[in-house]
Design a protein around this nucleic acid. Structure first.
Length: 465
RNA sequence: GUCCCCAUCGUCUAGCCUGGUCCAGGACGACGGCCUUUCACGCCGUUAACAGGGGUUCAAAUCCCCUUGGGGACGCCA
């Protein structure tokens, strides 16, 4: 397989959103699958809208997702001289010309064309005027067609007459996106350009520039959009869009990449893929060509799967981070990380996210005196009838030689036998006593993590409620 | 308006290129059940789709055309 050089080229006008992340992922996969290179270019030529924060956010997001890039990051704004050099060459070779039509002139042309039922476009007024200053336009061919074999959509062709003599350089001397992209991709040695669907129309125009320059045209591919549940383009009103928001909500990066990959890509019936598997199985031929709806329910399922598989040590670290974010570093330092390591396995099948896991871990990390009791649960299960039983169980636990899952099981078994009752009768009361609520992991494993002292203290407090 | 793209269960998709093995498979969800000390997990089952219409063919989800529906693009933004 020939080595592919692909790239991701976001403009730093906002955070990296889920759609961009998926495009980046596919592009990354494309390169990695071929043993090639994945480059990152920040298209910051729009000084008004580009910000450093956005640039940082994009880089952080890529890092979090594990989409590491090769080589230095290219900042498009640093390449203006090179872009202009190419534009000058285009003028010298007769592939471009100066234009002094005003905004109003062009608007009028568009309106006229629209009225006549044609595609709005520049009419070529200045084409042969031989002007020596002004904005620069590409002298695009008038007839024939420009086609390309899209990596995901197949052959796409556009009539040249449909295309504008697009602006290459503004009258203020700054180069335009379509020109900059071509020059940068060429200079960076990019062989495959995989980008969002919204660029399909730019592609034939860019090919025209490649041809005017006599450069090899890379392979293009356009990945379909991600839609919201209402089938409209995903936007803020659909909820979280930014990759880092998902991080904040406690989702695992590998779950994000896995879900995103499956949105528009498939490998038979397989649903769960490690990054390595994705790299091994990826082929642009398996990319879907129709837009897909972001389904939070399925995403949560995927995350749940990864939560179950995750290493408790790692989860403990993450839980410490999340806790610190919530209550501050000093406060969080009071919590023993080892507790998280111990609780994680109990919570792994139950937690949909890290935030969820931290929430469920709460009763484990507070002291008995601070345990929150659910009122309804207390009322229902901590009754005059059950309290004496709880006290007795506590006594028996206190008398235990060793505090193990086996001994706990035995002590309860014995208790049930002595009282001739079913476990059901005391299970929920015990649960409420030690956890403060009606749902929790198994009782004995819970007690074990709590430790004898906490278990007894909690039962004592519950009985006195 | 013009151009480009898209169209399989509610959702993500397999199958489509190389027609028959598809009265269409998997997954999420939903529903029902099992397991069970609660909640989850897990397991089992049910529900549910080839947008419509014409062709081509012995045979079409698969090939062709039209219609409809959806999306995107038409900037001296990127």
């Amino acid at each position: 397989m020939t080595k592919i050089v692909s790239r991701f080229a976001p403009s730093p006008t906002g955070y990296l959103h889920i759609g961009g992340a998926r495009t980046a992922l596919f592009s990354w996969l494309l390169a990695r699958a071929s043993g090639g290179e994945f480059r990152l270019r920040i298209e910051d030529t729009d000084r008004e809208r580009s910000t450093q924060e956005a640039t940082d956010a994009i880089i952080d997001s890529m890092k979090w997702l594990g989409l590491e890039h090769d080589g230095e990051i290219v900042f498009q704004s640093t390449r203006v001289a090179r872009h202009n050099e190419i534009i000058d060459r285009l003028i010298e070779t007769g592939h471009a010309y100066y234009c002094q039509c005003s905004k109003e002139d062009v608007d009028a042309m568009r309106e006229k064309a629209m009225k006549e039922g044609r595609k709005p476009k520049y009419d070529g007024t200045c084409r042969d005027k031989g002007l020596t200053s002004g904005a620069v336009r590409l002298k695009a061919p008038q007839d024939g067609a420009t086609g390309f074999l899209d990596m995901v959509k197949g052959f796409i062709s556009v009539e040249n007459s449909e295309m504008d003599d697009l602006i290459l350089r503004r009258s203020d001397g700054t180069p335009i996106y379509n020109l900059a992209v071509v020059v940068d991709d060429h200079d960076m040695g990019v062989t495959n350009v995989l980008r969002g669907d919204d660029h399909v129309n730019n592609t034939p125009r860019q090919i025209l520039i490649y041809k005017a320059l006599g450069w090899d045209v890379p392979q293009f591919g356009h990945v379909p959009m991600i839609l919201g549940p209402d089938k409209k383009k995903l936007s803020k009103r659909h909820g979280a869009l930014s990759v880092m928001e998902y991080e904040k909500m406690g989702y695992l990066p590998e779950a994000v990449t896995n879900y995103l990959a499956r949105l528009g890509w498939s490998h038979g019936d397989q649903e769960l893929f490690s990054m390595d598997e994705m790299v091994a199985f990826f082929s642009e031929g398996n990319l879907g060509n129709s837009p897909s709806v972001f389904d939070l329910a399925k995403f949560e399922w995927v995350n749940g799967q990864y939560m179950q598989k995750a290493d408790p040590e790692r989860l403990a670290d993450l839980l410490m981070d999340f806790l610190a974010r919530e209550v501050g570093e000093e406060e969080a330092a009071n919590v023993d990380r080892a507790t998280f390591v111990a609780v994680a396995p109990l919570l792994q099948p139950r937690a949909k996210s890290l935030v969820d896991m931290l929430e469920q871990a709460r009763p484990f990390i507070v002291d008995a005196s601070f345990l929150a009791y659910d009122e309804k649960a207390v009322k229902k299960f901590l009754t005059d009838e059950t309290k004496p039983m709880l006290s007795e169980i506590a006594e028996r636990i206190a008398a235990l030689d060793e505090f193990t899952e086996q001994s706990l099981e035995e002590v309860h078994r014995q208790f049930l036998e002595d009282k001739d009752i079913k476990f059901k009768v005391i299970a929920q009361p015990i649960r409420v006593a030690i956890m403060g609520k009606t749902q929790s992991p198994g009782l004995f494993e819970t007690m074990l993590v709590l430790g004898r002292e906490q278990t007894l203290a909690r039962i004592k407090r519950a009985v006195e409620l």
